[in-house]
Design a protein around this nucleic acid. Sequence first.
DNA 1: TATCGACTAACAAACGTTAGTTTATAATGC
DNA 2: GCATTATAAACTAACGTTTGTTAGTCGATA
Lengths: 193, 193
Amino acid sequence: MPESLEPTRREQIMSTAQKMMRSNGYQGTSMRDIAAALQIEAASLYNHISSKEEILRSTCFGMADKFITGINEVNDIYFNAEEKLAMAVRNHIKVLTENLNASFVFIHEWRNLAEESRKEFVSLRDEYENQFRKILETGEEEGLFNEVNNKFAVLTILSSLNWVVEWYRPDGEMNPQQIAEKLNEFILTGLKK
Amino acid sequence: MPESLEPTRREQIMSTAQKMMRSNGYQGTSMRDIAAALQIEAASLYNHISSKEEILRSTCFGMADKFITGINEVNDIYFNAEEKLAMAVRNHIKVLTENLNASFVFIHEWRNLAEESRKEFVSLRDEYENQFRKILETGEEEGLFNEVNNKFAVLTILSSLNWVVEWYRPDGEMNPQQIAEKLNEFILTGLKK
DNA sequence: TATCGACTAACAAACGTTAGTTTATAATGC
DNA sequence: GCATTATAAACTAACGTTTGTTAGTCGATA
């Protein structure tokens, strides 16, 4: 069987579903809606996926994996904290802008996961935040960063990064590299002259 | 008829609905769910509200009004830009923490508004962002702030403020004043020593 | 001759909402 | 002070849709 360059049917379903869930939310997107966009019947979807929730689960955990891979990469390489932070931000923005629809679902729709998956998801999220926090702690120890409430700082920084998904447009003024650069400036030195 | 100190039935419905929509989303909260929480039948809700969407509409526009009132107050009083920004942040955090559930719905569920309301809502949001942007522009002119992409800066700042709704707990370590203060520090001077 | 991927048909459950009714309380007219 | 009327707020029952999903089938491709 020849390895096709075309996306598999499953991948088509996933990306169509993600796009629609971005616009209309998880609960606002029905299996019939997804099927119609692919010009097939709802029942046919079940030849490729096992349930609607599997779409959400696969999306959320797939993205979590990408983000965590990104930050592990940063923490494995030795740099000072400032460089580490800059790299973490770049990686985050890269993953986010390369998977806009999936990222949106990841950020906004994870609450719709069933109990068990939701718990697992939250702990992955916590792990990611911890990795980020470690960078800030290193920065403090190195005397580079102000002493701040690190938990608070991480949440504030991540919110700025994640909000990019709300306004970023591939054809907009800023490309992902520029966005990451500006965010790094802002995080490090703030507004004040 | 004596003016009661009790909330009206409508207010009870609103705040119950907001609490449930915070946990389960707009579409994840049915009229029967809301009614059950109030120990009445779903049909009885319609003696007090006209539709499910009215709950969302009233919540979103009610909060928009509070936020806009807050920023107008700031811009009407003459301070320098740094003081204005600090006040705007304080007001934002105040409104947000005093109406946690409604704020959460305001931030996350407005997409479920019907076409017409959604457009109106978005323009109110734009107005708010413009008022914020004006403060940053003033700061630039006064030579207080760095020259930055103001649109970008406003979105980044507002994301940090809005994310507070995700983690703030009335019984947590930081009270709203402290949160606002920390956010102001961070916005002005960043992490770097 | 399997396997893949589509189909039709149907399911039980849940959805927002309406109609019409009942009951308790408040306001009014005599 | 009493009978009447009005109002508020609950109820039961039902409506037409839409929902996610399953079962079973059929044609095309490997």
